[in-house]
Amino acid sequence: MKYNLEKAFKFIEENEKEMQQVWIDLCKIESPSIDTEGVNQAVEFLGEKLNGYGMETKIHKFSQGPNSITAYFNNGSTEKEMAILGHLDTVHKKGLFGEEVVKVDIENDMIYGPGVLDCKGGVIVGTLVARALNSIGYDKMIKLAFSGDEEVGHRYTLGEGKQFFLDELKGFKACIDCETGFVDGRVVVGRKGTTNFKIAIRGKAAHSGNEPQNGISAIKEAAYKTINIEKNNDFNSIHYNVGVIEGGTSQNTIPEFCTLTVNVRFRKLSDLEKIKNFLTEITNTSFVEGTTAEITQISLSDPMEQTEKNIKLFEILKKNSEELGFGTPYSCYLGGGSDAAHSVTLGIPTLCGMGVKGYENHTIRERAVLSSLVERAKLIVKTILTLPENFEGEN
């Protein structure tokens, strides 16, 4: 079936102002990952808007932590074409942006505020895409799937937030994650995974002036472990960062306890065994005689592995971007994770970083380019409409 692309584009242009206002209103609802009530309020607000557009929505509740949401236009089709991902939690503490949470600078084409770029702007892109396709009678399934605790790797939902994606994305031909977009034209085809470990070290306390010879310094042991962990870094493969060290009781006491929190970035799930073996070896090695240590894995976020399927999807999007006059994007591989990992795990061709474009997410200077909402929506719509029936990336 041939669809009217120009009509879809006209819908996007005619609804730009309305969707900008939804973008603003959604970002005014401050929703840091740790604030379940705030995230759920954002989910409910969005759900009401999506219902108003005629979409069928479902709010997904978990054993604990914030909710997630899915939505689609029920056109009777069971043909799963594209899933569009995003998240409604942010990293900013409530109140950090002051009383005027969101600021709009029309003259400079900018919007400022928590989550305007990462990732509520992307949520609005996905919503506009689904609406535009529905307006031209698109008869395949486009599903929106938006998380409530992406920024913390679904830690607050005890991993159920990850399973949410694995369940909801099965069977789709392709997937686009409307995460933070980049003004330089980058499109993400791969991301490193993240895992965190805590190493708890025990020594022996003693008075540092009267009997230092009787003490065994856990902090000294931590220093040796830190040096030996970070000597093993390969920034193109597995990268270790001892990011937090906690220990000691006073300046005149040989420290009996110390903990290291180690953040690890890696490219493939198969790297995990190597990582665990290495850190276990470091943990079990006493550089300072008399110390002992234990290791605990405290979190895991899967990598978005770069695949040939992702590259094939990127080439389609790249061609469409050039034809639309939006420039020539280039593919990239990033160190930070996203929920695109889960669609790739399912074997689905996936692109990430396709939300609104902007600058300095995760900072109080977070801002996005207003006009990129329309540009990204048009590019994704055209990419969906030009996916071949026999798309080679099909899972």
Rank of each mutant, 00 (worst) to 15 (best):
Gly76His: 13
Gly190Ser: 11
Pro32Asp: 02
Thr57Ile: 14
Lys170Cys: 01
Lys49Trp: 15
Asn40Tyr: 14
Phe197Asp: 00
Lys276Glu: 02
Val152Asn: 09
Glu256Asn: 03
Tyr138Ser: 00
Ala83Gln: 06
Phe172Val: 00
Lys28Ala: 01
Thr78Gln: 08
Glu16Arg: 13
Gly113Glu: 10
Glu211Tyr: 15
Ala222Met: 00
Ile238Val: 10
Arg191Ile: 05
Glu281Asn: 10
Met354Thr: 02
Lys49Cys: 03
Asp339Gly: 14
Phe165Ser: 14
Gly52Pro: 07
Val356Ala: 03
Glu168Thr: 11
Leu272His: 06
Leu334Ser: 01
Lys10Arg: 14
Gly247Ala: 09
Leu385Gln: 13
Leu334Met: 11
Asp25Pro: 14
Phe172Lys: 00
Asn310Arg: 04
Thr328Gly: 10
Gly98Gln: 09
Asn75Pro: 00
Pro255Lys: 14
Tyr330Ile: 12
His92Ile: 01
Phe391Gly: 09
Asn214Glu: 02
Arg367Lys: 11
Asn196Ile: 11
Ile275Met: 02
Leu117Val: 05
Asp109Pro: 09
Ser147Ala: 13
Glu99Val: 13
Ser301Met: 12
Asn210Lys: 12
Glu13Lys: 14
Ala83Glu: 04
Ile219Ser: 05
Lys170Met: 04
Glu294Phe: 15
Lys204Cys: 01
Phe165Trp: 15
Leu144Arg: 00
Lys93Val: 03
Glu16Pro: 06
His87Thr: 00
Ile219His: 07
Cys119Asn: 03
Asp139Gln: 08
Thr386Trp: 09
Glu230Cys: 04
Gln251Ile: 03
Gly335Asn: 03
Ile229Asp: 03
Ile311Val: 11
Ser286Trp: 13
Ala205Asn: 02
Asn51His: 06
Glu151Lys: 11
Ser371Met: 04
Gly98Ser: 06
Phe146Val: 07
Ser371Arg: 05
Glu150Leu: 08
Ala377Met: 07
Gly126Met: 13
Leu279Lys: 13
Asp234Ala: 01
Asn51Val: 09
Thr363Ser: 05
Thr307Pro: 01
Asp105Asn: 01
Glu13Asp: 12
Asn196Cys: 14
Ala200Asp: 05
Gln163Asn: 15
Glu323Lys: 15
Asn196Glu: 09
Asn108Ile: 10
Phe257Trp: 10
Glu13Met: 08
Ala218Cys: 07
Ile295Trp: 04
Cys175His: 12
Glu256Lys: 12
Lys49Glu: 07
Ala83His: 08
Phe164Ser: 06
Val91Met: 04
Val116Lys: 09
Pro349Gly: 04
Ser321Ala: 00
Thr296Gly: 02
Asn108Gln: 10
Ser286Arg: 05
Cys258Arg: 04
Ser331Gln: 03
Lys225Met: 06
His239Phe: 08
